[in-house]
Design a protein around this nucleic acid. Structure first.
Lengths: 172, 172
DNA sequence: GTTGGAAAGTCAACAAGTCTGACGTAATAA
DNA sequence: TTATTACGTCAGACTTGTTGACTTTCCAAC
């Protein structure tokens, strides 16, 4: 498959940003940036013998207190066996509380304890600090483009999930 | 740590894009987009009983034919023992060739075989296809912002490595 | 020259986190 | 009553990461 893009395409507008080389640069930027993106939380997590999986669970439970195990499974896109181990340690360690569902007693609703919320703040503040620095350095226009491209990269279902996440107030 | 940003900051320019909520949206966008970003190659790799680690090795060997194991270690940021296993299977399967270094016979210089190059094309074309669609949908301005933010997110050393990667011609 | 340390690479063993598959229990829906 | 759903768990496997110990090779100081 070729995909060279010549200098002056039909519309008269330059499509040089679609060359294979530009795409490869973008791919590499994603790889390196993602590693940096997870580096700060990873340090904190390693101290506590947790991993990224714990962080993700904590993040989404914080985001939507009371969400069910199945709902969490859906956003994380992993198997329940895999999630279960992570969740069990978080519950044993007193970071997450699992309450029997109110509507449906088969469901388990997940909540962060105070201890869990404290770790969430520590993790997300570390991650936000890096993000904030990057945003500030790049400026609002760049940030808008950043979000646009990331969203355009998602599959339909993922994008729907992402959009469904509600806004939260600033850390109080 | 607070980090609320009020509506009208000193400069007179809106800093609303730096609110904790906006930062969180960006973090979540990174998480979901990265998953989508790796999804297509992952499918191909699973067919062949390889994983992402194999993809990364192949990518950078393609990028810089003849690079040494240590150089590859540096860009990937893993231990040599971890890389070694991946590299061994690639060599056994005839995708990568390891030649004794010319200057220094302790070094091993890595090259893709024809078979390795064929897989590289297949993987990277799948990944580029998604990237291309996202780029096209978002437009050149957004793409510039995307790259700016990702680069601003990297640590100094990573950014240096990223910048050191040379440009390659389009897929011939 | 010899030798002794540093660098490059390899082997072995273990841990985290993912997966599939099978099964059990409780609650709900038909 | 029966079928389905939600959840939890056990067992077994694989990928990818880790540390630690080892060999080979090179280089530089003696």
């Amino acid at each position: 498959m070729q995909n060279k893009v010549s200098v002056a395409p039909a519309g008269g507008e330059s499509l040089l940003f679609l060359t294979d080389d530009q795409l490869r640069r973008g791919i590499e930027a994603m790889f390196f940036a993602y590693r940096a993106f997870t580096a700060d939380p990873d340090l904190i997590l390693a101290e506590l013998d947790y991993g990224r999986a714990h962080h993700r669970a904590i993040h989404f439970i914080h985001r939507e207190p009371g969400l069910t195990v199945t709902a969490l499974l859906d956003v994380l896109g992993v198997t329940k066996q895999s999630l279960n181990r992570v969740l069990r340690t978080l519950i044993e360690d007193g970071l997450v509380e699992s309450r029997i569902g109110r509507r449906d007693r088969r469901e388990r609703q997940l909540y962060l304890t105070d201890k869990g919320a404290a770790l969430e703040r520590r993790l997300s503040e570390a991650q936000r600090a890096r993000m904030r620095a990057a945003y500030r350095a790049a400026g609002p226009q760049a940030v808008a483009g950043f979000r646009q491209v990331l969203e355009a990269m998602m599959d339909r279902d993922t994008l729907r999930q992402y959009r469904a996440l509600k806004e939260l107030p600033d850390t109080p």
